[in-house]
Amino acid sequence: MTTDLDLACHVGDVTVTVTSSPADRDRLARHFGDYLAGPIGELDLPGFQLNVNTDPDAFRSAAATFAARATTTVKPVPGVILTEGRTAAGGRCYTVAGDTLEGRPGAWAVSIDGSTIDLYVAESETAPRYALRMAREAMLRTYEDAGGIVFHAAGLDVSGQTVMICAPQGAGKTSTLAALLHGLAGRAALLSNDRLILHGQQSRVVAVPLPVPVARGTLDTYPALWPLTGIKPADLPAEFGTRHKVALPARPFAATFGSTLAATSSLAAIIVPDFTDTARPVSIRRLATEEARHLLGASCFTPSDEFWQPWLVRRTRSDAALATGATTTCARIAANTPCFQVEYGVRGPVDQLQRALAALIGDLL
């Protein structure tokens, strides 16, 4: 039973009940609202209880206790090192031993016992971000156990149908996403910028709540995004392909284009951007089935996600079973879903890209 201090957050079909102090509740609600589109109601998945504690004394006590119980280390994402140990009750506990990604070692500590996650945060203003991170981890691993497959991809919903954008980092996923949102003029809703979950024979797509990392080029192309960053243009390098980006909250990003968020959709088309630092005109070609299968395999992050290793919530299915499911899913999608490569030089006119993408989607959907 929830209380007035609880937030029932729906991360896909995973319900995460977030309990916090009255002082933290509104901040948590606003942050989760920037990323979550609401319940789906398609799968009966286990839920989680997430208790968020920002009391300084409680944090220091938990961090010291968990560090003292550490027996090994894990690296959930590149640049972050966690200690791992066991609580007195037999659950697992973690502290942040090193962090070259955000420069915040010791920022939080967490324990998990069954479906209960206790998060302790050093600075209350960062609690919403870390709380969403815990909920996202729970979502991803729960869906994988239920047969879902995670892809490194962006996605849009257009009238209940998904346009999935697959490409490695720096190839133009976010630029394609922005061009489609602009070109479709409010007819599309944002699913996610960097991870999508596919499940079922009908290839249902589920949004994973993540920020939208945007580089200087996209910000200059769509200047209405600049106010969301809180920084000046000089703070970001202008060169194409840079890894220096600013992370924008998903809902405000979509709202800049007159759009909103979608929680789920049904896969209808795949776009593969191949952008270069040239003025090359837009060209679009449909990929053969084997080309599409290879691309999907490279973009599939089940069972191995090079940027995010499972740690907080352990999967119950074996890697072999997960890999078999992923291979089958990639082959089925490649055989049944139109997949198009879009070549474009970012020094060319962006309206040409917008029109070409809008026309492609208009013809397909």
Rank of each mutant, 00 (worst) to 15 (best):
Y143F: 15
G85R: 00
R285G: 11
G148F: 12
E137S: 13
A89R: 09
T264D: 13
T54E: 04
P338D: 08
R286V: 05
T126G: 01
T95K: 05
A247R: 14
W108F: 15
A29W: 07
S21G: 13
V158M: 10
T100N: 10
T276Q: 12
E42L: 14
F301A: 11
A356F: 01
T54H: 07
A122W: 01
E123S: 07
C93W: 00
G106C: 04
T264G: 10
A29C: 00
I81K: 14
P273E: 05
T337G: 03
F275A: 05
T17D: 03
I361D: 01
L228E: 07
Y130R: 11
W226S: 05
V212I: 14
A89C: 04
T162I: 08
T260G: 15
H294D: 12
T176R: 07
A63G: 06
T2N: 14
T264K: 09
G362N: 05
Q354K: 01
F275I: 05
I231D: 09
E144Y: 12
G172R: 02
P76L: 06
A234T: 14
D319Y: 08
I197R: 04
A131G: 09
G91H: 11
D57T: 11
E125Q: 12
F151Q: 00
V14I: 09
K232C: 09
Q309W: 09
I271W: 09
E291K: 01
T126L: 13
S203D: 09
S61P: 07
C93H: 00
T276G: 12
N51S: 12
R315A: 10
T327F: 03
Q352I: 02
D13M: 08
A250R: 09
L5S: 13
A8P: 04
V80E: 10
L156G: 01
G297C: 10
D34S: 06
I197N: 01
I40V: 15
D277S: 08
G79V: 08
L119E: 11
E137I: 08
P56S: 10
A58C: 08
L28R: 03
A89F: 06
D113C: 12
K75P: 06
V96R: 00
N193I: 04
H199P: 13
D26R: 14
A358F: 00
A188C: 03
P46I: 00
P303V: 15
C9T: 08
S318N: 06
Y94D: 03
L267N: 06
A127D: 10
H199I: 15
T87H: 06
R136K: 14
P213H: 06
T221Q: 10
H152A: 05
G79K: 05
F340L: 05
G147P: 01
A323V: 10
V121M: 02
Q161F: 15
Q202H: 15
R27I: 02
A359P: 06
T327P: 05
M1G: 11
L181D: 10
A171W: 02
T162E: 03
R286F: 06
T116I: 11
D351S: 09
A358N: 02
A323Q: 13
C166D: 02
A262K: 04
V80W: 03
S115A: 14
P213K: 02
A224R: 13
F257Q: 02
L180W: 15
A255P: 05
M1P: 10
A268I: 05
T337S: 05
L184I: 02
C339Q: 03
R25K: 12
L236Q: 09
H199K: 14
